[in-house]
Design a protein around this nucleic acid. Structure first.
Length: 802
RNA sequence: GGCUUUGUGGCGUAAUUGGUAGACGCGAUAGACUCAAAAUCUAUUGCCCGUGAGGGUGUGUGGGUCCGAGUCCCACCAAAGCCACCA
């Protein structure tokens, strides 16, 4: 290895640290601001991962370029330091998780510094710091006051292995997102945030964002807005009625039965004596099934008749009432109208229970094939109408009869916000003896986590905090009460941390209003796609709430979002201890330096792509940096340095500055690097090396390989820091050539090329055509066949059609 | 089942957005330097036929639009991600 990256990197990292070169003066409004942020890591004991390095390098490149371009850049790092591994460590070793976490954070910081990231280290925050979670609690209290946080009994996702309840977003196919343990539904009193109140706002906010379309799509799906009609069905021979929700009101004439969820509140009342036995039996079976079983068995549409009938309001027909667990109690009104001819599920249920079917849309419905659109039949006033018109007509009729109204439903459920854990923010409320719940006085925040003798759950469902009896029992205004012993989920701190970086030492408020207004939103946010709904949805919710409260002045927290791909093991598998295919960034830095590591990760392909790690690739990155470094140290090349320009390099240099600048802006680092490689290849062939071009090269490369470029910049005789040197510019005139190469085709096949003047007019086009037709190498293709047409696209191509 | 994205050499990928496909890098082959090796430099490198000049063919498959398609349209195949009994 030729160039001494070790001493170079050590030298520059030391200078940055000593000079506090990347400290941001947030009060300096004289320059335009740029806020570039990484999704902050959980400080695990395993330390930094090559996957972290990829995203962090991308943001670091952006930060470094923006500094050079005259922006006041905020580029901070923090730690999502509440979390499960620390809790498990605490339980196992019976030690407080705090010091354990702090040790991991220290280790992380050492590693991040070795990667040459340009963070402002005076702004490090951690969510487990009481100075930080004071405000997490304050936001919660504010939501509590606004009735957006409530304590309620409901079926919740409970994970026995993890010993806690989980949010819907944390449950995947009946298993916990973390650890993949089974999750069951049980009734429990829990803290819930009313995110559903923000469903529409969260949907609308997506319009302002420059996010990957797939992520926007996922959020839309998760919110799951559907517009339809709520229809009242009276129970036959009874004063009772219930509503169903449908998006296909146009098929109402095809409704031949209705199905209630087994948990529907009218089921017991409407069940007749004759059916009581089978209904009770069915309900029991359902309650025994886990969510997982319910969905796994989705091909089998089970259910039973409850003996009563309902009246279809559109035609007064009597239809039987069934219960079936394919109808979910938690969505819509927990009841559906069944149209077996035009709904797959209803069709399956009807077949199984031998129920009648009425076709109301033309077309083949023998297998309930989906009918795109068409004329309605058997539908009275809706006959001959298409779906849209039929919906309109039938809705109007129902509204007139007072039997229906338009309704919007969302799949989004409220956010289950409490966890039976120790290592999280205490929920700052007190349960009084009279059963009422009050928030603690804002002035007494933070409610600090008490130390415990043991951090294990009590085993009776009570959270570990219940052990701290002295802490739990309080007296407020003479009334006895108990503190809440559940804690907040890990998502709490990460729902607003990005705002804290702006004014991290402010003890009175989240941040000084003037500063928050100036610095928010985050301009560019980079992190993994795994948070597409979880963190990114929660943070948008909190942000929008705080916007409504006037704390923030913008509606959305993250303007631009990118996801970095995953770095796989060299075997193509996900990197993990069990595969033994992990790569430790520190090992790579030890061997080839952080500059090479960063260059490799940015060059290997598009940022959002998941690619396997390659040792060979690192070698290639190192080779390129060595090649650059030699231009500044090898006598042979240094002797070619020149204070004048070199005509032969003008085009390629100016073009490179243009391309690299625009590619960085859109995070296309791989193509920017390849362009710089082309430039370096040209430098190697050149007789003269203009110093300003050498300087431009290292300035452009510095965001990716900051240490070796800082060194080269100094070798050119510069006394200032490369980090703030004005970003290289290009001359548009130098990029325009006076000659262009035309591709000459015959019948669309490339036959030859021709150099010609650039930007020709109509008359010159004719001249070019004449010239082309005379070209000797084309004669054998043209032969004597008649020429039908000659197409000339200026500066690009000539196609002769024969 | 629904939605979204992707399919290009031995490998990672690029393509001015409808205009010379394979830039750049890795790997490979040959040569220079060296006692030798490493490093470095130079050349070649999609596939097929041909000693060669040259020709043919080629961006998952099949069709279509167009003077011209990796790019646009239709159908299909494959992979990845998300959602999923959401009425």
């Amino acid at each position: 290895m030729a160039y001494d990256f070790k001493s170079i990197e050590k030298k520059w990292q030391k200078i940055w640290e000593k000079e506090k070169l990347y400290k941001t003066d947030v009060n300096d409004f004289s320059k335009p601001k740029y806020y570039v942020l990484d999704m902050f890591p959980y400080p695990s004991g395993a330390g930094l991962h090559v996957g972290h390095v990829e995203g962090y390098t991308a943001t670091d490149c952006l930060a470094r370029m923006k500094r050079s371009q005259g922006f006041n850049v905020l580029h901070p790092m923090g730690f999502d330091s509440f979390g499960l591994p620390a809790e498990q460590f605490a339980i196992k070793n019976n030690k407080h998780p705090g010091p354990f976490t702090d040790k991991n954070i220290e280790q992380f910081i050492v590693q991040l510094k070795k990667c040459s990231f340009s963070y402002d280290w005076d702004r490090v925050i951690k969510t487990s710091d009481p100075k930080f979670y004071k405000f997490t609690q304050e936001i919660f209290l504010s939501m509590f006051d606004d009735k957006l946080a409530y304590f309620d009994a409901r079926p919740v996702n409970y994970c026995k292995e993890l010993g806690t309840v989980l949010a819907n977003e944390e449950v995947i196919d009946g298993y916990s997102e973390r650890g993949h343990y089974p999750v069951t539904r049980i009734m429990m009193q829990q803290w819930i945030l009313k995110i559903t109140a923000y469903a529409e706002k969260l949907l609308e906010g997506l319009d302002y964002l420059e996010w990957p379309s797939s992520t926007i799509e996922m959020q839309k799906n998760w919110i799951g807005k559907s517009t339809g009609v709520e229809i009242v069905f009276d129970v036959y021979n009874s004063k009772d009625s219930f509503t169903v929700f449908t998006t296909r009101v146009d098929t109402l004439y095809g409704c031949t039965y209705v199905v209630l969820a087994p948990e529907h509140k009218l089921v017991d009342k409407l069940t007749t004596k004759e059916c009581k036995k089978q209904v009770e039996k069915y309900k029991q079976e359902c309650s025994k099934k886990s969510d997982m079983e319910r969905t796994e068995l989705n091909k089998d549409k089970t259910g039973v008749f409850i003996g009563s009938y309902a009246v279809n309001p559109i035609n007064n027909k009597k239809v039987p009432i069934y219960i079936g667990d394919y109808v979910l109690a938690s969505y819509g009104s927990g009841a559906v109208m069944a149209v077996p001819c035009h709904d797959q599920r209803d069709y399956e249920f009807a077949k199984k229970h031998d129920l009648p079917m009425i076709q109301v849309l033309e077309g083949d419905v023998s297998t309930c094939a989906y009918v795109e659109d068409g004329k309605h039949i058997n539908s009275e006033e809706a006959n001959n109408l298409n779906i849209e018109m039929a919906k309109k007509v039938i809705t109007e009729k129902l509204v007139k009869m007072n039997k229906g109204k338009e309704k919007v439903n969302y799949k989004l459920r409220d956010w289950l916000f409490s966890r039976q854990r120790y290592w999280g923010e205490p929920i700052p409320v007190v349960h009084l003896e009279d059963g009422s719940i009050i928030g603690v006085d804002k002035k007494s925040l933070p409610v600090v986590l008490p130390d415990l003798d043991s951090y294990a759950p009590l085993g009776d469902g009570q959270p570990p905090l219940a052990r701290a009896t002295k802490w739990v029992n309080v007296k407020i205004d003479g009334k006895k009460g108990k503190r809440e012993t559940n804690t907040m989920p890990q998502w709490a701190g990460s729902s607003w941390y990005y705002a804290r970086f702006i004014d991290p030492h402010n003890e009175n408020e989240i941040g000084e209003k003037r500063l928050l207004n100036h610095w928010l939103p985050v301009d560019t946010y980079i992190g993994g796609t795994e948070h597409a709904v979880l963190h990114l949805l929660y943070a948008r919710f909190w942000h929008r709430y705080l916007y409504d409260k006037g704390v923030f002045s913008c509606k959305e927290p993250f303007k631009k979002l990118y996801h970095q791909g995953m770095i796989l093991g060299s075997d193509g598998n996900k990197m993990s201890k069990s595969f033994g295919n992990t790569v430790n960034p520190l090992d790579v830095i030890e061997e080839a330096g952080s500059d090479s590591l960063r260059l490799y990760e940015m060059f290997k392909g598009p940022l959002d792509q998941s690619l396997p790690w390659s040792d060979k690739g690192i070698g290639g990155a190192y080779k390129f940096l060595d090649r650059v470094y030699r231009l500044f140290t090898d006598e042979f090349y240094v002797s070619k340095w020149s204070n004048e320009s070199e005509d032969k390099l003008e085009y390629i240099y100016n073009f490179t500055v243009k391309k690299v600048t625009s590619d960085y802006e859109i995070l296309h680092f791989n193509t920017a690097i390849s362009q710089m490689m082309i430039l370096v290849n040209e430098f190697y062939k050149s007789e003269k090396l203009p110093k300003y071009m050498l300087q431009g090269l290292v300035q452009m490369l510095a965001p990716i390989a900051p240490c070796v470029c800082a060194e080269c910049y100094q070798l050119l005789g510069n006394k200032d820091y490369i980090d703030f040197a004005k970003w290289p510019t290009y001359d548009e005139k130098k990029i325009v050539k006076d000659e262009v190469t035309y591709a000459v085709q015959v019948n669309g096949k490339l036959r030859t090329t021709l150099k010609y003047k650039i930007n020709i007019d109509e008359k010159e086009k004719q001249e070019l055509q004449n010239e082309v037709l005379k070209l000797e190498e084309l004669q054998k293709f043209i032969q004597n066949k008649p020429i039908r047409k000659v197409i000339i696209v200026v500066n690009k191509i000539i196609n002769i059609v024969i």
